[in-house]
């Protein structure tokens, strides 16, 4: 009877101890292991804006098209700029003629002695020749600008990437500096994982990462860097530059989220979309030795 009683208590206690151990392990794992459901795909986006204004004459690319660096994206009607070049060339020619005229005049005057012409007259012509020279240089520069403008009527891709959100039409008027299309840098995709601050001690640059996309795809990557600052939500500046702190009661204090930057391995094989949601799981420790070895070198 006593044996059974002891067995009963022993068995119950044993399974309780196991339960506590397993439960704690799961809790730690779930609450402390570095993983988050709150990950976002990010990419660098180049906002392409025309350098010269004008009607859009030609758009050889389509929305969401992949373009290589240097490919033509858009051409602005160049007639006006062609004419500007012609005009600048004409002006240059005129300046050239004048420069010759003044130069010869000055050379002629320079040979005459002071009995024939006054010193003042000679100086005047020589200065006029120098001014005509400068005017010619200015006309040359104006021509260069006109040529540059003409050249800039063609807009080329600055990086390899995807044209996106492209709504401009042939005939639209493009103004200077106003972006008309976004070009996503194809090599720049990375992931921001928003990790609770409690999980950060286990996150190290270089740790391998598994990324589960919402559509079921799986990627691998590495922790690239951990940021060194986020905004204090309670620290706003009020009037007269004085601090404005909200009185809040946090019965249970919750961890804030820190964005950790993660680079993606094998980017070419996984078409990603910037802004996608993903789950990020960091496998800490496996990289530690390699990381330690690499650190002094880097």
């Amino acid at each position: 009877m006593n044996a059974i009683k002891a067995l009963r208590i022993l068995m119950t206690l044993a399974i309780c101890v196991i339960a506590v151990m397993v439960g704690t392990a799961l809790w730690d794992h779930y609450m402390l292991s570095p993983w988050t459901r709150d990950g976002r795909v990010r990419a660098d986006v180049v906002a392409i804006a025309p350098d010269v204004a004008g009607l859009i004459a030609d758009i050889p690319v389509h929305d969401n098209e992949y373009v290589h660096k240097g490919d033509l994206l858009m051409r602005i009607d160049d007639k006006r700029y062609q004419m500007a070049v012609d005009q600048a060339e004409a002006a240059l020619k005129a300046a050239d003629v004048e420069r010759h005229l003044r130069k010869q005049e000055a050379a002629r005057r320079a040979k005459l002695d002071s009995l024939v012409i006054s010193k003042e007259n000679r100086e005047t012509t020589s200065s006029q020749a120098a001014a005509a020279d400068a005017k010619y240089d200015a006309a040359q520069a104006a021509l260069d600008v006109a040529k540059l403008n003409l050249e800039r009527t063609e807009i080329h891709a600055p990086v390899d990437g995807y044209v996106t959100n492209f709504t401009a039409q042939v005939g639209d008027y493009a103004s200077v500096g106003k972006p008309v299309l976004a070009l996503i840098n194809a090599h720049s995709y990375y992931i921001l994982g928003y990790f609770e601050e409690t999980k950060l001690p286990r996150v190290r640059a270089g740790d391998p990462v598994r990324i589960h996309m919402m559509d079921g795809e799986e990627l691998t990557g590495r922790v690239q860097s951990v940021p060194r600052g986020i905004t204090d939500q309670n620290d706003t500046v009020g009037r007269s530059m004085l601090a404005n702190v909200n009185p809040t009661y946090n019965w249970v204090r919750l961890a804030q989220r820190i964005p950790v930057r993660i680079s993606i391995d094998d980017l070419e094989h996984h078409p990603l979309i910037a802004g996608q949601t993903c789950t990020v799981v960091i496998k800490p420790g496996k990289q530690d030795t390699k990381q330690a070895a690499a650190a002094p070198a880097g």
Binding site: I4, I9, C16
Partner: peptide, 27 residues
């Protein structure tokens, strides 16, 4: 159940073990 001292506690612990083990296997 006669070998168990406190059945509800046992049940809870059993559940915690199963749930914990399942959760740990999953991750």
């Amino acid at each position: 159940h006669r070998y168990v001292w406190h059945p509800p506690l046992f049940r809870l612990a059993l559940f915690a073990c199963l749930f914990g083990a399942g959760g740990l296997l999953l991750y």
